[in-house]
Design a protein around this nucleic acid. Structure first.
Length: 468
RNA sequence: GGCGACGUGGCCAAGUAGUAAGGCAAGGGUCUGCAAAACCCUCAUCAUGGGUCCGAAUCCCAUCGUCGCCUCCA
């Protein structure tokens, strides 16, 4: 079975094929860096990280570009308010964001272009649009002439007429048409500005992404991603600009993740219902956030709340359990049972791929992974040896790595402690043999307080570091 | 007002025509000295009302409701 992807452009799932065999040109809109990133940003980053990892797992070489918008009104306003240099401010939030992503185990992009470092390419693109009369200059601003693009609105399903009817477009009498948008904004006093043929100024938001795409990936790309709040006007305008220039279809597949919602509302700065990534990571390992995202479809709104995080936490502990070693004194499974464990593992891998191939159906794939975990646990409690568990456990490891799960727990211990723990466990075994329950419970409780979990069985006790 | 998405058990969630996967929570059980973990069992007719069809959560129409976008936003 081959990969199918839901394309916002056609509003349906389509067979995936690439411009160049085996290669994927993948662009994702990154954040505007003017504030600490919240878990909505994290969701988007995780969704596209998972997609990117799966494409690589499937054998594609992925050129993954994520930009930073590092100059815009928000950044300038914030810098003015706090008396900071806008460039230093943007840099700080870029560094913070990258640090957050590292903790979430999001792979670094192939490249992270930034608007301020692409000025040459941005201006070049604007100049060409002017040359083709797709844009016009107005008092030092440059606007895109929307009515030169007959299919404008094809991504968002909007018509220019409808938009004109909407009362929320601010009317600017100077523009030829209200829907025309800025490619270049003339500088106001005190704002960062770049020299240009149209006077000092800075680029509009939409043209940045178009120019960076063109520069880093070429005239046509395979996948363009971002949050679904960017469909209009941002992505619509990117399409207009790029296609007006190249005359070719810009992106073949448009992918959009749903919004994180809190008590029914979108999580966003302007609503003030923010949970930052750092807030979240204070209480939970990064894997928990990944599992929270994996548990529902990337296109649907993602509920944030105590319930669902608790559920992700439980799933996390469950998956960690699959990595446990064989029981002490395991007698071994029959050959038939060992074989059927391997079959179960292979089936899990097949089902996992099938689910992922269907527009990255992670909730379904997760169900298959949990089935595998169940099989492993069953085999383990039936006395499978380490060797017998190995095959299934390596499949489990393979699949969890495709998703970027680390499943290491947040162990703060050092290996140095292990001999001492083993000694205590042995002593407790002796106490248990003598039915000295008081002492044996004391050791167990004491170790638990130190983060070591004991599991008793007839054959003896095993221990693991407590997760989280 | 326009455009788009959506409404499945207490919670999350898969499923686009043949009579509802999975997880969490809950209840019962096995194992255990007692626990913990693990395993087993139980737990929905799919917003509402029509329609199409031998047959619909799945297609069509209507109604109600939710969310997103139309202004910066992952």
């Amino acid at each position: 079975m081959s990969l199918r992807i839901y394309n916002t452009l056609s509003r349906q799932k389509e067979e995936f094929s690439t411009l160049e065999p085996g290669k994927v040109r993948f662009y994702v809109c990154g954040p505007t860096v003017y504030a600490t990133a919240h878990i909505g940003h994290a969701m988007s980053a995780l969704v596209f990280d998972i997609i990117r990892r799966y494409l690589e797992y499937s054998g594609y070489a992925v050129n993954f570009v994520m930009n930073y918008t590092d100059v815009d009104d928000k950044i300038i306003n914030k810098a003015n308010q706090t008396g900071q240099d806008p460039f230093a401010l943007a840099q700080k939030y870029i560094d913070d964001y990258r640090a957050d992503l590292d903790k979430l185990n999001v792979l670094p992009a192939t490249s992270n272009p930034r608007a301020t470092r692409e000025m040459e390419y941005i201006q070049n693109m604007i100049a060409q649009l002017l040359e083709h009369e797709k844009a016009y200059v107005l008092d030092g601003d440059v606007y895109y002439r929307v009515n030169t693009k007959p299919d404008y609105g094809k991504l968002s399903g909007r018509k220019i007429k409808d938009m004109a009817a909407g009362s929320r477009i601010s009317l600017d009498d100077r523009k030829e048409s209200p829907e025309d948008f800025a490619l270049w904004k003339s500088a106001k006093p005190g704002e960062p500005a770049w020299e240009s043929p149209w006077g000092k100024g800075r680029p509009g938001w939409h043209i940045e992404c178009s120019a960076m795409n063109l520069h880093h990936l070429g005239e046509q790309i395979d996948i363009h991603g971002g949050g679904n709040d960017l469909i209009f006007p941002h992505h619509e305008n990117e399409i207009a600009q790029t296609e007006a220039l190249t005359g070719k279809e810009f992106a073949r597949y448009w992918m959009h993740n749903g919004m994180v919602t809190m008590t029914g509302e979108k999580m966003s700065k302007s609503l003030g219902n923010i949970v930052t990534i750092q807030d979240f990571l204070k209480d939970h390992p990064g894997d928990v956030m990944r599992l929270w995202v994996l548990a529902s479809n990337y296109r649907a709104p993602l509920v944030y709340g105590d319930d669902v995080i608790e559920q992700a936490e439980q799933n996390y502990k469950r998956l960690l359990g699959a990595k446990k070693p064989a029981l002490p004194g395991a007698k071994g499974l029959s050959e038939a049972a060992a074989f059927s464990l391997l079959k179960a593992a292979e089936k899990a891998r097949r089902s996992f791929k099938e689910a992922m191939d269907d527009d990255f159906n992670t909730p379904l794939a997760l169900a298959h992974v949990i089935e595998l975990v169940k099989s492993i646990n069953q085999a383990r409690s039936d006395g499978a040896t380490a060797t017998q568990l190995e095959g299934a456990q390596s499949v489990f490891k393979e699949l969890s790595e495709v998703w970027g799960l680390q499943l290491e727990g947040n162990i703060t211990s050092s290996a140095d402690a292990e001999p001492f723990i083993r000694l205590l466990v042995e002593l407790r075994q002796e106490a248990r043999a003598q039915k000295n329950w008081a002492l044996s419970d004391k050791i167990r409780d004491g170790l638990k307080n130190l983060g070591v979990l004991l599991e008793d069985s007839k054959e003896g006790s095993s221990w693991t570091w407590e997760q989280k």
